[in-house]
Simulated scan of single mutants.
Amino acid sequence: MTRKGFESFVEQLKLRLAEPLPGKKAQVEMAPRPIDERRFNENPERPPRKGGVMVLLYPDEGRIHVPLMKRPVYNGTHSGQVSFPGGAWEPMDIDLTHTALRETEEEIGIPQSAIEVLGHLSELFIIASNFKVLPTIGVVYEKPNFIPDPIEVARVLPMSLDVLYNEEQRKVKTMKFPPFTIHSPYYDVHGEVVWGATAMMLSELAAIMEQLIRK
């Protein structure tokens, strides 16, 4: 993809994100099985915390990429998992878009001022950590220089969006969370398992991109 082609894609995507989104119909394609409807419905007696993540698109070697990151092992729900840059809303944040921008700068070193915001994917409730997360779609027009925070990031994983359509990189893993056993679709990215909420957000992005391709 040329620079002009990437810019054209960005404009088309920006227009598409302003229209109704695929939402749950697309997210569920990568949801763990058996499908648990509680995954999508927060408990009104225990309001979820708000969070924002950044889906940052950039060109590299003729393809569109997005950076994921592997979190270090720690005593927490998402220990060692792969995610987008992002985190919890803080009182200093104007909104959840600002949360995503701030966290992206803090975690992988991309200045907020360098990112053009295109729009958002659908919010997604994460039952394991009781978060409701808004994914922001952003873009930079050159491959970024990633500067991972050594405390929050074990590894940056640049992922070509071609992965979303490669059947060899879309797999299913059996996971045990006693007393439950689930069968989770996941994307194999540099040997890492990208599953759960991150995979579900990527699934919605894939659905939107397929719509653009068909136009």
Rank of each mutant, 00 (worst) to 15 (best):
L212R: 00
P85M: 02
V139G: 01
E123H: 09
S160E: 00
L205H: 01
A31V: 02
H65Q: 13
F125Y: 15
Q81P: 02
S79R: 08
G51D: 03
V189E: 06
I94W: 13
M1C: 04
R16E: 11
I64L: 01
R49I: 14
F180H: 13
R16A: 03
S83G: 01
S184N: 08
P47F: 06
A114W: 09
R49Y: 10
P91H: 15
V55R: 05
R33G: 07
V189S: 00
W89I: 03
G5D: 12
T136Q: 07
E142N: 15
Q211N: 11
M175K: 10
V140L: 15
E106H: 09
P72Y: 08
V140M: 14
P178D: 11
V156W: 03
D149L: 08
R102P: 01
R38M: 10
P135S: 11
E152N: 12
P148Q: 10
K173I: 13
I126L: 05
T97W: 08
T77S: 12
E61R: 11
P150Y: 09
V10S: 02
N166S: 11
A114T: 05
L68Q: 01
G62D: 07
M159D: 01
N75M: 12
V189M: 05
M175N: 06
F146Y: 15
L56N: 00
W89E: 11
F6M: 08
L161V: 12
M1P: 07
G196I: 03
T77Y: 01
F84G: 02
A197R: 03
I110C: 03
S79L: 07
T99H: 07
M201I: 13
L124V: 07
A18M: 11
Y165F: 14
R155D: 12
L161G: 04
P150M: 10
M30C: 06
H78F: 15
H190K: 11
H65E: 14
T104I: 06
T97V: 14
L101M: 03
M92E: 15
A154H: 09
G62I: 01
A18N: 14
K14C: 12
L118P: 07
A207F: 05
Q12L: 12
R3W: 08
T181E: 13
L57P: 00
L161F: 10
R46L: 13
G51K: 04
L68C: 02
